[in-house]
């Protein structure tokens, strides 16, 4: 009986102690990583500060490729024709509904005047780049927190922290990311974060000859972008994925949705 008692007490003791240790650990970890836990829960500042987005009026896009070219220059994107932060695609729809998509060198050298194909019923250009999704799958899958959504809604990469696993490249539904061949880290459109933070427009928008592309703050009711969205009938790419993209296209045709 007595033996049993001691056993019980020692066991209780053990629980107490281990409980205390666990509690202590928890306290220690709470001092600073709490922020991380909160961040993991997906708290994002909405309604205060800027919340950037992009808009394109496809009626105005002439497919000159200036945006793609300027982006390569501005952001030191490798010259090879498979690395793009921003590029232009030409969609051609034949009368029997076949859709052809072409993007020679991402549109950097422009699109050749096509030998007019009588079969083609309609054709249009679509400039593409990161959609800066509010619920971005690339940020979700990053194992180390190297890809993140900035407080103003721009999806960025922390080059110094990225381990180059390429998971985000797989996760992006819009094919906006690539692994930098020299740095071996993920690279993507930053909405020219270094420019917009200094009050300049992103390079692609600066050089657009027709003013087809604009950017702005979605929280500011007087911004160009909000006006643009209100005045046009904008759609986003792949809405069913629920990634909440912030790249708004006016006059997006069904073939490209």
């Amino acid at each position: 009986m007595e033996k049993e008692n001691t056993k019980v007490s020692s066991r209780r003791d053990f629980f107490k102690k281990s409980g205390a240790i666990a509690g202590g650990l928890l306290l220690v970890s709470m001092l600073d990583p709490l922020k991380q836990i909160k961040a993991l829960a997906g708290e994002k500042p909405k309604g205060k500060g800027a919340w950037y987005g992009i808009g394109v009026d496809l009626e105005k896009c002439i497919g000159c490729g200036s945006c793609a070219k300027a982006c390569k220059t501005e952001n030191n994107v490798p010259k090879e024709p498979f690395f793009f932060r921003s590029w232009v695609e030409q969609y051609s729809v034949t009368a029997n509904g076949v859709v052809k998509v072409q993007s020679p060198n991402g549109g950097v050298d422009g699109f050749k005047q096509p030998v007019l194909d009588k079969e083609i019923e309609k054709s249009f250009f679509i400039p593409k780049s990161c959609n800066h999704c509010a619920k971005s799958p690339c940020e979700q899958v990053c194992p180390v927190g190297a890809t993140f959504i900035s407080p103003d809604g721009v999806v960025l990469v922390d080059e110094t922290y990225c381990i180059g696993c390429g998971y985000c490249v797989q996760a992006c539904p819009y094919a906006c990311r690539y692994l930098h061949p020299v740095k071996h880290t993920a690279d993507k459109c930053t909405l020219c974060y270094h420019r917009i933070k200094k009050g300049l427009a992103p390079a692609c928008i600066t050089v657009c000859p027709t003013g087809a592309k604009i950017y702005g703050d979605l929280n500011d009711k007087n911004s160009d972008l909000v006006k643009f969205i209100k005045e046009h009938n904008c759609t986003v790419l792949k809405p069913h994925l629920n990634t909440k993209p912030k790249f708004f296209y006016n006059a997006l045709k069904e073939e490209a949705e």
């Binding site: 496809l58 019923e121 759609t235 006059a251 997006l252 045709k253 069904e254 949705e257």
Partner: peptide
């Protein structure tokens, strides 16, 4: 309309 307007279809996916 198909050739000149921007047409949408529902649930294209």
């Amino acid at each position: 309309i198909l050739e000149n307007k921007r047409v949408l279809i529902l649930k294209s996916e």
